[in-house]
Simulated assay, not measured.
Amino acid sequence: MEKNLNYKLKEEGTNSLDLGDYIEYDWKKAYIFTPYTTEVDMKKVLGLTFHDPVNMSIRDDRELLVVIKEDNTFEYMSVDLRYGYLQQKGEYITPENDVIEITHP
């Protein structure tokens, strides 16, 4: 999923994507964490035990997309900011409202 998502961001003229098109399992919420977000802040938002896999608190080249599955487990994707910045429209993304805007650098 991470590879496909980063590939989509590389495409010229891509200004949005439907996140659900990239998720092959039942999910209920997704969150985008921007550079310099601390692990403590991510845990508060997610409400789950979570270990930051990419050290977001010191990174300025990545965003982290965390998808919460129906069974309260999660999957994450590291998004390379060279290709674009993801923008969620609300507090979180849901299967019913899964369009993410992309801003290119």
Rank of each mutant, 00 (worst) to 15 (best):
26 D>I: 06
21 D>H: 05
28 K>Q: 09
56 M>D: 08
95 P>F: 12
97 N>A: 11
12 E>N: 06
21 D>R: 02
4 N>M: 09
12 E>A: 07
102 I>T: 02
17 L>P: 02
97 N>W: 07
34 T>Y: 09
96 E>K: 08
8 K>Y: 13
82 R>C: 10
96 E>M: 07
16 S>W: 00
49 T>F: 15
36 Y>C: 15
66 V>I: 04
79 V>D: 04
75 E>A: 15
2 E>R: 14
19 L>N: 03
36 Y>P: 05
63 E>V: 10
58 I>D: 08
93 I>Q: 01
63 E>N: 03
99 V>P: 08
77 M>N: 12
105 P>F: 11
49 T>V: 15
62 R>S: 05
24 E>A: 05
23 I>N: 10
55 N>W: 03
70 E>V: 08
8 K>R: 14
46 L>M: 10
37 T>H: 10
83 Y>C: 02
41 D>W: 04
1 M>F: 07
79 V>N: 00
86 L>I: 14
22 Y>F: 13
4 N>S: 09
37 T>A: 12
6 N>S: 13
36 Y>D: 12
38 T>D: 08
51 H>I: 14
11 E>D: 13
15 N>W: 06
16 S>D: 00
21 D>I: 03
16 S>V: 00
26 D>Y: 01
25 Y>C: 11
92 Y>R: 03
69 K>T: 01
74 F>H: 04
16 S>T: 04
92 Y>A: 05
19 L>S: 10
103 T>R: 08
72 N>M: 09
58 I>E: 05
38 T>S: 06
91 E>F: 05
30 A>T: 02
13 G>I: 01
59 R>M: 01
8 K>N: 14
103 T>K: 10
62 R>L: 04
41 D>E: 07
96 E>W: 11
31 Y>W: 09
38 T>A: 13
94 T>S: 10
92 Y>L: 09
9 L>G: 11
38 T>K: 12
37 T>L: 13
36 Y>A: 14
95 P>G: 11
68 I>M: 13
13 G>P: 05
34 T>W: 02
34 T>V: 13
54 V>M: 12
88 Q>S: 10
73 T>W: 00
21 D>K: 00
66 V>W: 03
86 L>Y: 07
53 P>H: 08
83 Y>D: 04
19 L>F: 12
79 V>T: 00
69 K>Q: 02
38 T>H: 06
58 I>C: 11
8 K>T: 10
87 Q>T: 00
81 L>K: 12
61 D>Q: 12
18 D>Q: 09
53 P>K: 02
36 Y>I: 15
14 T>M: 14
50 F>I: 13
42 M>N: 05
57 S>Q: 13
4 N>L: 14
33 F>T: 14
94 T>Q: 09
65 L>T: 01
5 L>K: 10
104 H>T: 15
74 F>C: 09
21 D>Q: 01
67 V>A: 10
6 N>L: 13
81 L>Q: 05
45 V>I: 11
30 A>F: 03
21 D>T: 00
73 T>K: 03
33 F>P: 03
47 G>A: 07
57 S>E: 01
30 A>V: 01
67 V>E: 14
63 E>I: 04
90 G>Q: 07
15 N>S: 04
23 I>H: 06
22 Y>P: 00
23 I>T: 10
31 Y>L: 03
65 L>S: 01
6 N>R: 13
29 K>L: 12
8 K>D: 08
41 D>F: 11
55 N>E: 07
76 Y>R: 07
70 E>D: 10
15 N>T: 01
53 P>G: 03
59 R>L: 02
